[in-house]
Nucleic acid binder design. Sequence first.
DNA 1: TTGAAAGCGATACCAC
DNA 2: GTGGTATCGCTTTCAA
Lengths: 381, 381
Amino acid sequence: MAVTIKDVADAAGVSVATVTRALSQPDKVRPATRERVRAVASDLGYHPNRAARGLITGRTGNLGLIVPDLANPFFPGIVKGVQARAHEADHAVFLADTDENPAAEAGLVRRLAKQVDGVVLCSPRMPETELRALAAEIPMVLVYRRIPGAPSVTAGFLDGMRQAVSHLVALGHRRIAYVAGPRTSWANRERVRSLRGVTRSSAFSRSSASAGIGRPMNEGAFPGIGRPTNEGTSPRIGRPTSEGVSVDVGVSTTGGARDEVAEIELIEMGSVMPQFEGGVAAADRILATRATAVIAYNDLVALGLLHRFAARGIAVPEDISVLGFDDIPLGAMVHPALTTVALPKGPAGRAAVDLLLTPQMVNQQLPTQLIVRASTGPAGG
Amino acid sequence: MAVTIKDVADAAGVSVATVTRALSQPDKVRPATRERVRAVASDLGYHPNRAARGLITGRTGNLGLIVPDLANPFFPGIVKGVQARAHEADHAVFLADTDENPAAEAGLVRRLAKQVDGVVLCSPRMPETELRALAAEIPMVLVYRRIPGAPSVTAGFLDGMRQAVSHLVALGHRRIAYVAGPRTSWANRERVRSLRGVTRSSAFSRSSASAGIGRPMNEGAFPGIGRPTNEGTSPRIGRPTSEGVSVDVGVSTTGGARDEVAEIELIEMGSVMPQFEGGVAAADRILATRATAVIAYNDLVALGLLHRFAARGIAVPEDISVLGFDDIPLGAMVHPALTTVALPKGPAGRAAVDLLLTPQMVNQQLPTQLIVRASTGPAGG
DNA sequence: TTGAAAGCGATACCAC
DNA sequence: GTGGTATCGCTTTCAA
């Protein structure tokens, strides 16, 4: 059997109370006894049972972390950040991978609830009402999602999108396609909103193309995609205003020409799964739009595009530029290397833990940074 | 405060003992009371506190999982397998990423010890003596490592290596380079041993080249690498025996010609870090050996090779064939797609959990499978 | 400065 | 069948 506090007490010839104090309130014990107890403790290899401690203190020293899919290279970065910060604060981490199944998440959180001091939740798809109910039951920090009533850590999507579009515009691109992620995903909604905001495009100037994984023939598979929603500007019928389709390249942090104003045509492709296969599936349709550049929902989708383009003999960036989101390690390993908007992963994880350890109702927004690599180049080769 | 068993007991008008029984030994309670208690429990949203339960039962319902680096795409697969099986068995999983720091592992295990029923340990580098000490303290299953005294789950490296070499030989390759992983890694030692066994090459017939990340000029950086060890056959000075350097292609499961016997020259490169950068660093030295095919310690290293070859204008597989180990998802996404020896990841994780839940001192060996993709082709273009 | 004892939430044993 | 209670390992009053 494992060594308990009583074993230490007996061996040191003191009471259990003294052992506790010697270990956690050193100044409330005579130096001599303290050292003796500590010696005996480390001698016996005593480690307090945190579960038993938690029972009485109410704090477990554990955190929960829920992610949708560890196989998506975006998440290990977050997990590592959470772990690193948690260990610094002497906390252990329960990890649960929900396999992209939002329905399982609430159950997992509740199962963990009694064993943790709080939960870091990466849940792009759980319905907001459910999320709110959960946040009321247990201390919780959201990562890459924001809802009223819960602290969260996100990134400056709007700024990131601005950097991305400015970069492409500076390279001469005017027809830009966007491959959307899951409609229900918060991150996708934010990206679409940012993109529309940045391009200031009206409903009229925006083309749309529908699509769906596994059923490319069904035009109605994703109703609502490509149609204006109440999130963006209201639709305008008629000619686009000059304001509606212009973007000031000078906003860019990439050093593009200042004060140039360009007309941009944003082509919104349908939703795909946020995975490699999603990109592969969307590639051919993008070519059909004759866009000169494409922004993908995330790097995995972008890699799928690159893969299919390579298979079809389409040169990147000569024939078409490709830009992703996330900055997963993989993006730097492929040829051509992927230009991407880097989202903080480790820092986001660390920040989330901090918010859990020092509860405060804030929505922390981390910076994004465009990383220019070989997959984007001048329009028209 | 959270709802406890006493709350349920009071609300149902029974004792806490009855509540426990109604929930965990249904047949020892009168159906009427059982249903009433259960109704009240779910009404109040009661979930037993597993920490308190563990205190008395001695079983926590939790598992520990320790991996060296989640950012290596090999490990998420294992983690997912462990999680899936653990959740099926109603267990939660503590995850710890040691950041490739073997020294931290023992501490992490001990910190978790009291809160888990056992630990799944992926530790290719921890010294065996330390590992053994740990295994004596807490139920533990090793993944992709084998030591006496602890149950483990590994894969048929020898068979995998045989498939790999047979494949290359069938394609006409006779000069094959191997890029080693960390010298202290169990998996690397096994791969080297398998490779030597398969090629049955003597010390004389084996060339060697030394190397090290960041100090390619230092010939002595990795003493021991490329030299025969007591793991392989003892060195022979003089002409290689025919037995020493031949391999029967017919052994292959890839359908190579039967009964052909070929002479193989194995060129052992030095150790590199088991990462993309390791492969990038080794690429140029491999070209200098004029090997027509190269087997990399793992897929990440292989991807580094591909990357550097592409940058130098070396065509794969026309100029050189590249073969990896692991089958990480990434390998299928690049151009050319990577031929690799697939190691089971999810199944290994599941098997490890099974071994923990049903303790048995076995060393389970899972099958490997060569996956042929575009990065290997006929020798000489 | 130290020890005795209550109590955290749940289970298991022993009466009834 | 059901209830009372000792117990798991630890922390925290409360006395001494």
